[in-house]
Nucleic acid binder design. Structure first.
Lengths: 207, 207, 207, 207
DNA sequence: AATGAATGAGTTTTCATTCAT
DNA sequence: AATGAATGAAAACTCATTCAT
């Protein structure tokens, strides 16, 4: 009896969390297909097969669903960043690319929604994208600067170099996110990662 | 009187075209600021200082305004593409980048709107972006292939190379389109163009 | 065991009655602050710190809470009326005023809610106000008639006189109920009661 | 042709004003019957036989209708107040009562709505009632003070006297506004006005 | 060609109430 | 008896579009 109490509570809690997840996942999919504005609360409710008003037992309002998607899925991105302790050589960059491909591709619908929203919505851009992207860009710049200092790289503007590095990532991801190309397999994006880093270091030229 | 007729008509036509342009320009700005869905027909009418219903004398409906923006401004992009007769050497690619920067940056609001829309809307993606981007990608791939054939490039996948080339362009453009960085000056994007091409050919490495 | 039964039951009953009272008091306060329509069942439940649905174990529905407030608090007013055995002289009227002030002011929130509701809701007006107010008005009219008969009063319309008597009460109470004036102290409303009766008998004039 | 312009405009303007009036009148009636909260925008639209959304061409939102009722009908009350240049004797007070009865009774639905709303809504109380009622109360207090100074009145608290004067007005009006008594005829409220003032001056007592 | 007025079809959100546990 | 979860019904409000003038 005494032990039942915590079990009961956590079962109920798990029930709630499960439903929240369900809603978030349905909404993520819908937002990525039709956009946030193009998705109605009714669409979401229908997708989870609950009444429209039931949504409001789990979320304050529609925007709250969007923010929940971003915060509750976004932490996956922090893991990637967190794992990058030191980005101090070529191989580390390859691995960063790989991890980034992995997390982007495992959450295509999420990423597509996030980018669409960050494109128009300053709050979302700032509260989610700016910090993380800035952090990554900083790491890459530091790496470039180090290689310059060691005489491995030509003295280029590290900021511009970082934009190139990120741009090449975008060049590979955007068609996938947009759905014009199928998601690469892990083997493929390992190869792409290496390809990008090789070009960054040595270009395509045949030296 | 008889001679007047055509003059009159063409004057009226010019009048109409001028108003259409005005609407298109106002709508482009509004769409780029608030998104297509976030912009009301009332917003557009107010911006041009006409009645809301007057819009419908110039355009079938709201979406038609969006399509008109894309087709009537989009042709500028065709010029860039059209001018690229032969993309057969490094310098030609630098020049392509420069022209592309030029046209993107001179129409930031348009480009921002176009990308936002193409991100969600298949019709717009296909009818406008796919073809042009595919064409450019094809040119770049052909160039890469040629360099490979001539032994200048290592034997990489030309498609992947093209994605890198386009990605580096995105890496420079996206922050500008998104408004997180100021538009570069012509001198700056000349330098950026050269920087990108240099990296493509030789990497950042200090050979 | 056998004796326990009734004790148990009455303890439970008392428990129930206590909770009912709690709900009624919280609801009275909320209704007087935000109006009946402006108060949600959730507001009430929160104020008593119970679940929203638990309310329905004590009351049929929201309106039932309102009716319970009115009947279960309203009986206090009956006491005032009941105590007025004979309203047959000036002093008795002073005392009636005093008692009325006392009961109104000791239940400002209730009175405010009651008046607000009776203003729009015929059922409440009739089932609660009409009878009691009519009774009081009748007593006052009878007093006036008696004074006329005895030659103390001029022959005025007793009904109109009663409306004046009640009106002067309203003139003193309304600003307090509305919250634009602080509630008078017992000493003050004794003075006000005498003042009103004096004006009724002799006017403000300096005879 | 030149003269047509202003005519056209004013005809259209008159059309708009007419519709606004229609809406305001229907809303006033509905609000006085079912309360502001109990009246839906649909009720109002139906009463004027227009689409619900058409309301929003004439008013910003529902509350705006209420405020329009109050400001656009309320000015009638200002006329009454404005006409009271000097409230310096008994007869002037009688006339003030008469005018007040007149305006209250000619707009029963409005007055009932106003009082209901001012009872709960501080903004409306302050922006409309407080000032005007305060002004009237001030005039009455000044009159009482004057009569005290001239030895005509006993030295009572003028504020309390004013509350009695206003209270007696309420005593006569409230049952009419509430609909429990039929509106008095002009002859009747003249008699009531005189009755109230007589009681104020001399009481009901038979001196 | 220009437009004021009208509106249908939604959209998000609220809330009293029910019901299974 | 207590309540979390679910919801139908309605509410205010929006907006692209039509139409008569």
């Amino acid at each position: 009896m005494v032990d039942d109490q915590p079990v009961k509570t956590s079962r109920r809690d798990r029930q709630i969390q499960r439903k929240r997840r369900e809603i978030i996942e349905a909404a993520t999919r819908l937002f990525s297909e039709k956009g946030y504005g193009g998705t109605t609360t009714r669409d979401i409710a229908d997708a989870v097969d609950i009444g429209e008003s039931t949504l409001y037992n789990y979320f304050e309002n529609k925007r709250d669903i969007l923010l929940a998607i971003i915060t509750e899925t976004g932490f996956l991105f922090d893991d990637v960043i967190g794992q990058v302790k030191r980005l101090d050589n070529r191989q580390a960059l390859v691995e960063l690319y790989e991890k980034a491909f992995n997390v982007f591709i495992s959450r295509i619908a999420f990423t597509r929604t996030l980018l669409a929203q960050a494109w128009m919505d300053n709050e979302i851009l700032e509260s989610f994208v700016t910090y993380r992207l800035g952090h990554i860009a900083g790491l890459i710049q530091a790496l470039i600067q180090k290689e310059i200092d060691e005489g491995v790289f030509r003295p280029i503007d590290p900021a511009q170099g970082a934009r190139m590095a990120i741009g090449m990532f975008l060049g590979a991801m955007v068609p996938v996110l947009r759905g014009t190309e199928p998601p690469p397999t892990p083997a493929e994006y390992r190869r792409i990662s290496e390809g990008i880093v090789t070009v960054l270091w040595d270009g395509i030229g045949n030296h």
